[in-house]
């Protein structure tokens, strides 16, 4: 068996040299498609982190008018504290609201200086356990008897509710679209690289047709005849995959620190484990594409 392995490798290597233009084409296409696949996977993890981060910050704010009775505020707070899916309820006083506002506008302190008194309303800040199920909590608030009494403005209680209406939904649908487009692109490129590898193997078969016909005549087994070609397809795909992984690693180490700095508020889970996973996915898909391309070529052009 040891002889055979050496034979297969040397056959594949010879064919590699002989058809280097086509081989280069095969490697380049598979490199590009795998690079895109890898970038898509990276972006995916990045976007998932971002969406998760934004989602976890979603809470409900109930603006309270300055004339509201403390009893009613306490009542609403108690109801909410006993509601399912509510993590915590915090009453933001007028002073605290001003403090936060001052902090937010610290770059232009003249804004706060020009304020007359404290125009900021109190509010109830409600943190949720599951941000997906925001509606049930909103219903509880709307149905409570205190809500119309404390809402600011009292004339239009609905405007007193603030909960990042629809942000998550639109964010998710946008990323979903991007994800589908990415999958389609990767799919197309995978097909293109399949065709390219198929073509290279076809040429390799053509270049060795005399040898192959003799091999068939003297009774070389089908597996023996096929193995060098499958190996060649896999070899091409592997070179492409390794190049793609190297480029992704380069992107990670050069572009990523800058990105993390710009988006400092988001905690990215951009770890070595993730990179290892992506590298594995790329290697495996490369091997599958390479072997499949070779097998298709042989089914069509190598009648055994």
């Amino acid at each position: 068996m040891s002889i055979n392995v050496g034979y297969f490798i040397s056959e594949a290597a010879t064919s590699f040299r002989r058809n280097w233009v086509m081989t280069f084409g095969g490697i380049a296409t598979i490199f590009l498609s795998l690079l895109l696949m890898g970038s898509a996977l990276l972006m995916n993890s990045l976007v998932t982190d971002m969406v998760g981060d934004i989602e976890s910050r979603i809470n409900i704010q109930v603006w309270i008018n300055d004339n509201a009775e403390d009893v009613d505020i306490d009542g609403l707070q108690t109801i909410l504290q006993n509601t399912e899916n509510v993590q915590s309820v915090h009453l933001v006083s007028k002073d605290e609201a001003l403090q936060r506002f001052t902090y937010m506008t610290q770059d232009s302190p003249e804004i706060v200086e020009q304020l007359q008194g404290n125009p900021l309303p109190r509010s109830l800040e409600i943190e949720l356990v599951d941000t997906q199920d925001i509606d049930s909590v909103l219903t509880v608030i709307r149905n409570s008897e205190q809500f119309p009494l404390v809402a600011d403005p009292p004339a239009d209680p609905e405007r007193a509710l603030s909960y990042g209406q629809g942000i998550v939904e639109s964010l998710l649908s946008a990323t979903q679209t991007a994800r589908y487009a990415g999958i389609a692109l990767v799919g197309i490129l995978a097909v293109v690289s399949l065709i390219f590898i198929n073509n290279t193997i076809r040429l390799a078969i053509y270049a060795r047709r005399n040898e192959l016909s003799i091999m068939r005549l003297v009774g070389a087994s089908n597996g023996f005849i096929r193995a060098p070609f499958i190996l060649e397809g896999i070899l091409q795909a592997l070179v492409g995959a390794i190049l793609a992984i190297l480029v992704l690693l380069a992107i990670k180490s050069f572009a990523f620190p800058g990105l993390q700095q710009t988006l400092a508020f988001i905690q990215f889970s951009f770890t070595n484990t993730l990179m290892t996973h992506i590298a594995l996915v790329l290697l495996v898909s490369g091997i599958i594409i390479g072997a499949l391309g070779a097998i298709i070529a042989m089914r069509k052009y190598l009648k055994i």
Partner: peptide, 11 residues
């Protein structure tokens, strides 16, 4: 030798 090689005969 090729004829023997491809049916897996030893060196």
């Amino acid at each position: 030798a090729f004829a023997l090689q491809v049916i897996g005969k030893s060196k």
